[in-house]
Design a protein around this nucleic acid. Sequence first.
RNA 1: GCCCGGAUGGCGGAAUUGGUAUACGCGCACGACUUAAAAUCGUGUCUCGCAAGGGAUGUGGGUUCGACUCCCACUCCGGGCACCA
Length: 980
Amino acid sequence: MKNYDHKKIEKKWQAEWDKKKIYQAKDGKGKKFYSLIEFPYPSGDGLHVGHIRSNTAMDIISRKRRMEGYNVLYPIGWDAFGLPTENYALKTGKKPALVTKKNTDTFRRQLKEIGFSFDWSREVNTTDPGYYKWTQWIFLQFLKKGLAYKSKTTINWCPKDKIGLANEEVVDGKCERCGTPTEKREKEQWMLGITKYAERLDKDIDLVNYPERVKASQKNWIGKSEGSEIEFGIKNLKDKIKVFTTRADTLFGVTYVVLAPEHELIQRLKSQITNWEEVEKYIEKVKKESELERNAEGKEKTGIELKGIKAVNPANNEEIQIYIADYVLVGYGTGAVMAVPAHDERDFEFAKKYKLPIRQVVMPYNFDTNNPPRLGKDNTKREVVHIILRNQKDKTVLIEFLKGEKWGDLSPKNFIIGGIENGESEIETAIREIREETGYTNIKFVEKIPLEVQAEFYAAHKDVNRVAHVHTLVFDLLSEEKVEIEEDEYFTKDSHEIKWVPFADVEKTVNIPDDKMIWKYFYEGGLAVLDYGILINSGKFNWQGSKEAIKEITKFVGGKMVTKFKLRDWIFSRQRYWGEPIPVVNCPKCGFVPVKEKDLPVKLPQVKSYKPTDTGESPLAGISKWVNVKCPKCGGKAKRETDTMPNWAGSSWYYLRYTDPKNKKEFASKKNLKYWLGSDPRHGGVNWYNGGMEHTTLHLLYSRFWHKFLYDLKLVPTVEPYLKRTSHGMILGEGGVKMSKSLGNVINPDSIVKTYGADTLRIYEMFMGPFEDAVVWSTESIIGSRRFVEKVWRVGMSVAEQNKNSPAFALGDKRTGDRHGSLNFSPAPLEKLLHKTIKKVSEDIEAMRFNTAISAMMIMASEMEKNKSVEKEDYKKFLQILAPFAPHCTEELWHNLGEKSSINLSKWPKWDERLLIDSELKIILQVNSKVRAEIFVPSDEKEEDIKKRALANESVLKFTEGKEIKKIIYVKNKLVNIVV
RNA sequence: GCCCGGAUGGCGGAAUUGGUAUACGCGCACGACUUAAAAUCGUGUCUCGCAAGGGAUGUGGGUUCGACUCCCACUCCGGGCACCA
């Protein structure tokens, strides 16, 4: 018996696979499968255990697909441009290109030692001029189509990295990389027009198979919103203020208008504004605030009125104030909003602070689900008052508790309610109702709550369906003085009880929706009602449904329906050295001129210093030899663009290059693209792409954008790059925290491979927990995976021993015949378990349930070891399903049994459905849902007989004797439950 | 604040068209082998109870013969978005 020596075996087979090139994909041959992982950034820290988790998962899937007869492309490359390398180079004086070379060498060695089945012949590197030539070429196509343009923008500037950041790279107002709070700077930057694709990026999400949370994230980031653009006039002036709103139904409730401090109109109206000095000061203040300060949590909104000018509400010609405020963003919509404090939380907050009027125009519509209108009853409508009768002395409110079967399941608990009779005022009604229902007479009117509500319910006391238009009045109780309450047929002392309830308990005591809302409004001093409802105070639109009125009101004031997106154009310039140079020349005569395609790539020059400058210019600007060129158009003196691309550029199209990595004429040939992505535009793409959640909004969105652009140029055959996306969970350090150098909890895969072997590491990482969840690393637990591998090894050794003297086919052949008819042999329990395991593992791999697949194989391995005689063919099938997880040891054991070709190219075993059926079934016997016994019955036993057996069972009888059997429930093949 | 996910033994986790809760693994305890240790193998390992039995899947309710699974309310944890009108 050979000992399991992982070092020897793994090295041997890695060399063999390399030599025979068994994992190389063949362009255009047979049915294909393109599986992809995010290519790593080769940092100086070496491979992270997190890389291994993602890579192993896709490796397992790729290996299974190969065994299923697919021509698999599982490529690898390096996303090597970027800041850490440049910063390291800066610190050590080493060349970034050399640092990259060293790091990729390390990564390559590590990846090979774990036995991933990458097609190494297609390795790409974004920093290779042969690669970035095409990144630059694609940029020129953007330029040609007007989608790349230079624009002066306020950028997020990181003072430490000295670099402009895209919005997506600013997290909580801080630089994503170094955590320094960002500043705002004005700078000319290259932009990519991703917003032109916003609609399609949003819509086409439906074509692909991404996890829901990823889809939701992308949609949220794109931020599509449909609304209206409406113009507000300015009194005595020709200028208009255009606002964007999704709630045109609330137009009659506008009580002021707000402009962003950066709004261009403000400067134009300077002469009309009477408090200009103040206004200017305010604008300066806002500008100086960093992104962090302006967005700080809980920050109070600030603003200032533009005095001397008034806006005119086009709906009712009302003159209203104009404000500028920091809560309105210049970059979204029109940079101006109509403020409806009654129905928008932000406007409400601002209006409260600056004491601006609040006018309700949408009346909430409460349909009482506890007491809904009933069919066949009369429908009535009433004007109604609800009365909050307050006792200021002990801070209580009077609440009515109604009782009786009339009210259905839930007895109403509400404020005093009364219908307004003809000719009565609301106050008169209230006084009358209080006297009639409570007897109190010494009361004082306090206020009317400026919130009207409409309610629809079944009014049990009158036996009608009712729509009530609710007005709410507040009264104070002055003394306990009372008169006798008169009873009538529906209002009796029994049906009705009153209680004084403390303020704090009112909300949870009242149980009709209107009173809950009214109380909240009263108690909190008002609130913004966001729901759609019924319009009031809205001229001719009164009593319409507010949602339905949006289009009409927009039309009424001459506005138009528009779609807006949160997504902004992509800031594409970086003022750094280690990135793709933007291939443009700036000519004093001709402006920005693209470098001729034949002159690509524009290579990075060799420089001494990579230091970025405080002026914000790239280090490239200092290299006059490189910067000064002839204009490609006029031949005159010109200067190269010195900005470089962000490192999202190279990763936006790398999956395309894999299909044809050495092509010198195109970024990839149409033929190869068509083969690997498929030719159906709406149903093609990379078959399966696994990556981290952290790339959901940046990389994934950017590459979808580039892909769609290339599709429009008819350069790629599909509208989407990736058909299916999955995400692995993070691996956390021991203690459940992120692995980081500073915490010293980073696991070095090299040492794990050395001690336990690559197969063990792969199995461990897949066994740790559900693939999509975060898991905590535990070096202590790895031993379990190692024991499993060793167990498989021991079984393999004994199977080989048993078969030493018998020809290879002798044992295996006996069941190759009749596959479809009845079984002509009685299968051993072990064989049945094998087929169950094959099925489980096959299905679990597809669903990425690697942990349960491994668990099933562990059970199988233990059973094989217990069972002294294991059929060789059974064992070999077991090896085959294990091979994607542990390719090295299974290959060794496979060959040890006389096989000559690789297990990794063998045919994936099929399970035999007939072997999954048990001849005997275990039936659980329950009495009153408690398990009392289990019995075994033949699988074809009739329901009646099983029930009979159950009733006769001794343990069951103990609990049923002398009791009446009410019911017997039988669940097929599972249990019998006897209810007594 | 909003959106998404989650809560099951000492630990990682398994079980959902509702049907034996705790598979598999780690750890721990005991035993076998050994002069001994390691490794390996075996047995045990939610909890109360001598037992018969009872209780337990974050908390409280509900539906059901039966709930980790479905419904309602809540607590806590993780992730994402965050003045987007």
